[in-house]
Amino acid sequence: MAQLVRRQQLRVRVAYHGFALQESDDASLAVPYPDETEFGTYLNAFPGRLDFYSAGHTHTAAVVVEVWDGLPRFSG
């Protein structure tokens, strides 16, 4: 069963309805933020980048990021 490696709480500035989590070395990203993001879609996934959409235009959001050592295990 996968184990939690790290959990971090962040306060993220949302501007123009969105924010992104991406690799720290953005030179290796195929598409820089916010290029190709779909407005109104809650989650857009790209290699090395996740874009999030918010109904609020400009605000600060509370975000919790978790790193696990394996894939989730679903039951049911």
Rank of each mutant, 00 (worst) to 15 (best):
Met1Tyr: 13
Gln3Gly: 07
Leu4Asn: 04
Val5Ile: 15
Val5Lys: 14
Arg6Asp: 10
Gln8Ser: 13
Arg11Met: 09
His17Arg: 12
His17Ile: 04
Gly18Trp: 06
Gly18Thr: 03
Phe19Thr: 04
Phe19His: 03
Phe19Ile: 02
Ala20Val: 00
Leu21Thr: 01
Gln22Gly: 05
Glu23Arg: 12
Glu23Lys: 02
Ser24Gln: 13
Ser24Leu: 11
Ser24Thr: 12
Asp25Arg: 10
Asp25His: 08
Asp26Trp: 12
Ala27Val: 07
Ala27Glu: 12
Ser28Ala: 15
Ser28Lys: 15
Leu29Ala: 03
Ala30Cys: 00
Val31Lys: 02
Pro32Met: 07
Pro32His: 13
Pro32Ala: 12
Tyr33Trp: 15
Pro34Ser: 07
Pro34Met: 04
Glu36Asp: 11
Glu36Lys: 12
Thr37Tyr: 14
Phe39Lys: 09
Phe39Leu: 10
Phe39Pro: 01
Gly40Glu: 11
Gly40His: 11
Thr41Ile: 14
Tyr42Val: 14
Tyr42Asp: 14
Leu43His: 05
Asn44Met: 06
Asn44His: 05
Ala45Gln: 09
Phe46Asn: 02
Pro47Ser: 13
Gly48Thr: 07
Arg49Phe: 07
Leu50Trp: 14
Asp51Ile: 00
Ala55Asp: 14
Ala55Ile: 04
Gly56Ala: 14
Gly56Ser: 10
Gly56Asn: 09
Thr58Leu: 02
Thr58Met: 01
Thr58Ile: 05
Thr58Ala: 10
His59Ala: 04
His59Lys: 06
Thr60Glu: 14
Thr60Trp: 03
Thr60Lys: 01
Ala61Ile: 03
Ala61Phe: 02
Ala61Asp: 06
Ala62Trp: 02
Val64Lys: 01
Val65Phe: 05
Glu66Phe: 01
Val67Cys: 03
Val67Gln: 08
Trp68Arg: 01
Gly70Tyr: 04
Gly70Asp: 09
Leu71Glu: 11
Pro72His: 08
Arg73Phe: 07
Phe74Asn: 01
Ser75Asp: 12
